[in-house]
């Protein structure tokens, strides 16, 4: 393992090996719907759009990191409906870092996985996020 890869792994473990709990807030769901140009006709207890899950456990402010990153892909499996007022706990972990040789040095495909559980402990969603990073 190169020094650059070791550093990246440490950085990504600090970023992804975390558990965050947050409520599904009505205002946040309305913001999501309005950003999609959908009528924000939703109330407490209503089912939220499945992809609203992408907004949970985010860090709001950019996290400092070396190099450049772009998203490569996102994968979701939705197992049960999520409603406004639920509390979701997202457990993320760094799943893999694959090294690919690019024209200007190594490029890394970083894969992280997330498990979303509601307040009853039921898994409602599984997530895999992939990003390319280089210039580490």
């Amino acid at each position: 393992m190169t020094e650059a890869l070791r550093e990246l792994r440490e950085q990504m473990e600090a970023r992804y090996n975390v558990t965050r709990t947050e409520p599904v807030e009505l205002g946040r769901v309305r913001d999501y719907l309005l950003a999609m140009d959908e009528p924000a006709e939703i109330g407490f207890g209503d089912v939220v759009p499945p992809l609203f899950m992408l907004t949970l456990a985010r860090t709001r402010r950019p996290q400092p990191s070396k190099g450049t990153a772009v998203k490569a892909g996102d994968e979701y499996e939705f197992r049960a409906p999520v409603r406004v007022g639920d509390t979701i706990t997202v457990t993320q972990r760094l799943a893999d870092i694959q090294v690919k040789e690019g024209k200007n040095g190594p490029m890394y495909l970083v894969i992280a996985e997330g498990t979303f559980r509601n307040q009853r402990g039921e898994i409602v969603c599984m997530q895999r996020v992939k990003s390319f990073r280089w210039g580490q």
Binding site: R28, D31, Y32, A35, L54, T55, T59, R60, R61, P62
Partner: peptide, 15 residues
């Protein structure tokens, strides 16, 4: 406007 609204919606303000 759409880009900034989406920053708010997804709770990620990557500049």
């Amino acid at each position: 406007q759409h880009l900034v609204e989406w920053c708010a919606a997804e709770n990620d303000y990557y500049y």
